[in-house]
């Protein structure tokens, strides 16, 4: 099955590299990946689609959490969510078939965003399966070029993927708190 995961990440340099490297070395297959900004400054949101059973979904989520720059991960395939993708499709078209293409555009509630004598560019914002279906229907026409953004997703209803609150830790105490330094002072402390 496909898992759609959304991750809030720190907008640090290299974070995409960290995530991509993790997927590669753990052997997870990314089917699609979309990255963009969020309502909060300094936080980006990544949406992944990963193919695999529930165990793979669980491992992807947990392995992502091991990256320090990852703030929150949610498996949206477990919940009711809105899933969308944008596709731009450039189709070769001439006078004789332009009407048929524009009919399809209308049926799929897509838009023709650029029309020339020999081509039409169709823009579709829809569930990825709808995009697949439009592409099937366009099979009769020569497609010159096609691009899809990869899916993005959001929970239905008022709830959201939120940034967890992290209690600040006293720098001077963390060695003791971790339970690894139960006795004695730090070997050297300035002052």
């Amino acid at each position: 099955m496909k898992h759609t995961l959304a991750a809030l990440v720190e907008n640090h340099p290299g974070v995409l590299n960290r995530v991509a490297s993790l997927f590669r070395r753990r052997g997870f297959n990314i089917e699609s990946l979309a990255v963009g900004t969020t309502e909060q400054e300094g936080i980006s949101r990544m949406t992944f689609v990963v193919e695999g059973d529930d165990n793979v979904g669980e491992q992807v989520e947990k392995q992502l959490y091991k990256l320090i720059d990852i703030i929150k991960v949610s498996d949206l395939s477990r919940e009711e969510s809105i899933v969308r993708e944008i596709a731009l499709i450039k189709v070769r078209s001439e006078k004789n078939n332009r009407r048929d293409i524009l009919d399809l555009v209308e049926i799929f509630r897509a838009q023709a965003v650029d029309i020339t004598e020999y081509s039409v560019v169709i823009q579709l914002v829809a569930h990825p399966e709808t995009v697949d279906s439009l592409l099937e229907n366009l099979a009769a026409y020569p497609i010159i070029e096609m691009v899809r953004t990869g899916r993005i997703a959001m929970l239905r209803g008022p709830q959201a993927i939120s940034v967890p609150t992290t209690e600040p830790v006293e720098v001077a105490r963390f060695h003791q708190a971790s339970g690894r330094r139960p006795e004695g002072e730090l070997p050297y402390v300035s002052e």
């Binding site: 703030i71 992290t166 209690e167 830790v169 720098v171 001077a172």
Partner: peptide, 14 residues
């Protein structure tokens, strides 16, 4: 300036 506190969002070591 040595920070007195640290908080890393999403990192929960305890």
């Amino acid at each position: 300036e040595w920070p007195e506190q640290i908080s890393i969002r999403g990192y929960e070591p305890f």
